[in-house]
Design a protein around this nucleic acid. Structure first.
Lengths: 342, 342
DNA sequence: TTGTAGGCGTTATCAC
DNA sequence: GTGATAACGCCTACAA
């Protein structure tokens, strides 16, 4: 009636505990015949290993490093908060997650950080950074040392990372596009696309998806060339004002990157904050407030809690050599409107 | 450097293991002074209980029953599949979840089931059923026996259930409403609202939310009185055809309940499947296919995986007398379009 | 190739 | 009130 243990298997198979353990953990030094005797007993009794006991005996612990860009960014703030919270909640489960901050926009700093990680006291690494050849190599070195690596939010597709935790930017852009097209109540319209930098692959892919939907489903609408703030609020104000001056019939704004604070301020200043359809990415205090006061119409979001928990689960699974449960790890593209704001 | 254990606490506080355990588990029979000595040691060393070891020593296991309506329903099918999957994945963590099927639309059967549950072999119950006074009493009896109870998908707000796992139907209706209003490209339109039964509280609340948004934000649109299929496909066909005959200028259909298969078949038959804005609830094989072929424009969804995992986590927490992590347990109202289909 | 004995960190059952 | 001591189920030296 009660769950069978290794003792039951041992008795059933007529061998000792150690032999059962060797078979269960696929260790060498057991005769093929004995192996199958044990396997049969496992099968017959319906044995499932007790992970609590196993982890206890193994003295297993998971020490992870999260290499994240530093600097002021509301998305990153909420992400870091979610990570700290999750790490704290799982401390009792022998998990620790350190945040390793790296100056944003400094690819060399990321590489230095990755190469300087204390490999002997580390069981996995999560990295949020744009891909460069040097980053790729650094990931390769970590993998060569046997350390699991996951890419976070921004994929490193040409590196040997084990897994990507995040959403497909192209699909996210398509989702933004269809909302823009359907929310604008006229068939012909001009749309302004804004980001910090079109160097970032995220922005490129989002724009690609956005344009694709526009071309397919809203042929009367035209998306203007992307304007770039380079993370400079004053530049943002200038280029947005300029765009509205030279193209007054803009009906929608697609904010592909960060910088929603200066963007919305500028729209407010020029008196266009309420009559436009605005679609932005990432739910932050700013976009949340803007949804509530109807300055932003839709936010395309990736839930930071999910990102964090998924990264932790995947790293754990990779450490244990366990399968990951794909369906659970797929990060959804959330559409957040004023009405379904969490 | 390594994590402190109860042994370290005992040494630090100058007491024995047993005393430390008594303090940690708030058991009686320890002098107040000794208690604070131990507490201080815990504080000083930063001790956190190892859940693996604790669960092992306690021989803790979690046996849950899920009381679910039987009968053909795509949402329930996906829900049951998700439950089986989650239960299997957590079998190694000493969790078992049985599904107790109950004839749908038979309140007495639910009550009989609840009253007949083997209380001595049960650590928690999740219930998906409409609220009736008898159900309320049955939940009361379970609680009186000390068994944690969660309501699933459909809340039992007047019962002493510990927690509700699901979404707010009113908000879900508002979300459907705003999508309908914004997706219809004219300012004046008639909208057909369909469900199986307006007896169900879910449908009532969804309709309420839907109407509220319509009145507030789309004053030119009119929602027709809800039509009810009573779970009869032929009746569904008849009433929908009739509605379109008597009101040909319908521009949108809001499907509040189950029955999307006969609804879509009927729309197809009368040649209206592609020119309407259709908003439905719950992502199922039918609504998924309809999103892909553009017969349905938006689906309001509650992720079954989340529902299941949340219910399991909450029941576990209640068994352990632990706090639940609210943010993680809030089920989101997912908006699913063709573009962000998972 | 197989078995024995002890330990992982916590809890529970005894004595004192 | 308090303290030894033996589980819990699994893993791992080391011995045979």
């Amino acid at each position: 009636m009660a769950r069978p243990t290794v003792h039951d298997i041992a008795r059933e198979a007529g061998v000792s505990l150690a032999t059962v353990d060797r078979v269960l953990n696929a260790r060498p030094g057991v005769r093929a015949q004995t192996v199958s005797r044990v396997r049969e007993a496992v099968e017959r009794l319906g044995y499932v290993r007790d992970t609590y006991a196993a982890n206890l005996a193994r003295q297993r612990h998971y020490r992870f490093a999260f290499v994240l860009p530093d600097g002021p960014n509301q998305f990153l703030d909420t992400f870091r908060a979610a990570l700290r919270e999750a790490a704290e909640a799982q401390a009792a489960d022998r998990l620790s997650a350190r945040i390793e901050a790296v100056p944003a926009h400094d690819p060399h700093a990321v590489v230095r950080m990755l190469n300087g990680l204390p490999l002997s006291r580390l069981d996995g690494v999560a990295i949020m950074t744009p891909e460069t050849p040097q980053v790729r190599d650094a990931v390769g070195r970590l993998k060569a040392e046997g350390i699991p690596v996951v890419a976070l939010v921004s994929d490193l597709p040409n590196s040997p990372r084990d897994h990507f935790v995040g959403i497909n930017s192209f699909q996210a852009g398509r989702t933004a596009g269809v909302l823009m097209g359907r929310f604008i109540r006229s068939d012909a319209a001009r749309i302004l696309a804004v980001t910090n930098s079109m160097q970032a692959r995220d922005s490129i892919e989002r724009r690609l998806g956005f344009d694709q939907v526009m071309a397919e489903d809203f042929p009367g609408m035209a998306v203007l060339p992307s304007i770039e703030s380079h993370d400079d609020p004053e530049r943002m104000a200038r280029i947005v004002e300029e765009a509205f001056r030279s193209t007054p019939d803009i009906a929608g704004v697609y904010s592909m990157g960060p910088g929603n604070v200066p963007l919305l301020e500028t729209l407010r200043r020029i008196g266009r904050a309420r009559d436009l359809v605005v679609v932005a990415h990432e739910l932050t205090p700013t976009t949340r407030a803007a949804l509530l006061n109807r300055e932003v119409d839709a936010v395309i979001n990736q839930n930071v809690g999910h990102l964090v928990r998924s990264a932790l689960r995947v790293l754990r699974a990779k450490c244990d050599g366990a399968e990951i449960f794909e369906a659970q790890e797929r990060i959804r593209i959330d559409i957040v409107l004023r009405e379904n704001l969490p």
